[in-house]
Simulated assay, not measured.
Amino acid sequence: MELSRRKFLTGLAAATGVGALAPAEAVLARPARTIVKTATATRTGEYLYLSFYVPSDANRVAVKLTKSNPETKVGVGLFDWRGAEYQSPGFRGVYGEESSEFHVARGSASRSFTPGPIRRGRWTVIVPVFRAPGPTKIRVEITLTFGPERGTVRPPNEVGVVNEAPGWYTGDLHCHTTQSSDAFASGTALTPEGWADVARSIGLDLVSLTDHQVVKQNSYLKEAAGTGVLLL
Rank of each mutant, 00 (worst) to 15 (best):
M1V: 13
F8S: 07
G11F: 05
L12P: 00
A13Q: 12
A13W: 05
A14G: 15
A15H: 04
G17D: 03
A20N: 03
A24E: 15
R33T: 07
T34M: 04
I35E: 06
A39I: 06
T40K: 08
T40L: 04
T44W: 04
G45A: 15
L50S: 09
L50G: 09
S51E: 14
F52Q: 13
Y53N: 14
R60G: 00
V61T: 05
A62G: 08
K64S: 04
K64G: 07
L65I: 10
L65S: 06
S68Q: 09
E71Y: 13
E71W: 07
T72S: 05
G75M: 09
V76H: 00
G77A: 04
D80L: 07
W81E: 13
R82N: 11
Y86T: 11
Y86R: 13
S88E: 02
P89A: 11
P89F: 06
F91Y: 11
G93F: 12
V94E: 14
E98R: 00
S99D: 11
H103R: 14
V104I: 15
A105L: 09
A105H: 02
S110C: 14
R111W: 00
T114E: 14
P115G: 10
G116W: 03
R122I: 09
V125W: 04
V125A: 01
V125K: 05
I126E: 08
I126G: 13
V127F: 01
P128S: 12
F130Q: 02
R131Q: 14
P133G: 05
G134A: 11
P135Y: 06
T136P: 03
T136H: 02
T136G: 03
I138R: 01
I138A: 03
V140P: 07
V140D: 03
P148S: 00
E149R: 05
E149K: 02
E149F: 00
R150F: 05
N157L: 09
E158Y: 09
V159N: 02
V159H: 01
V159A: 10
N163Y: 00
A165K: 14
W168T: 15
Y169E: 06
Y169S: 09
G171R: 02
T178F: 07
S180D: 10
A185D: 15
T188K: 01
A189R: 12
P192D: 06
G194T: 09
D197W: 00
V198P: 00
S201C: 04
D205V: 10
D205K: 09
S208N: 09
T210V: 12
D211K: 02
D211R: 08
Q213S: 14
Q213R: 08
V214H: 01
K216V: 13
K216Y: 10
K216I: 11
Y220S: 12
Y220M: 12
L221Y: 12
K222E: 14
A224W: 00
A224I: 08
G228S: 11
L231R: 03
L232K: 01
L232F: 04
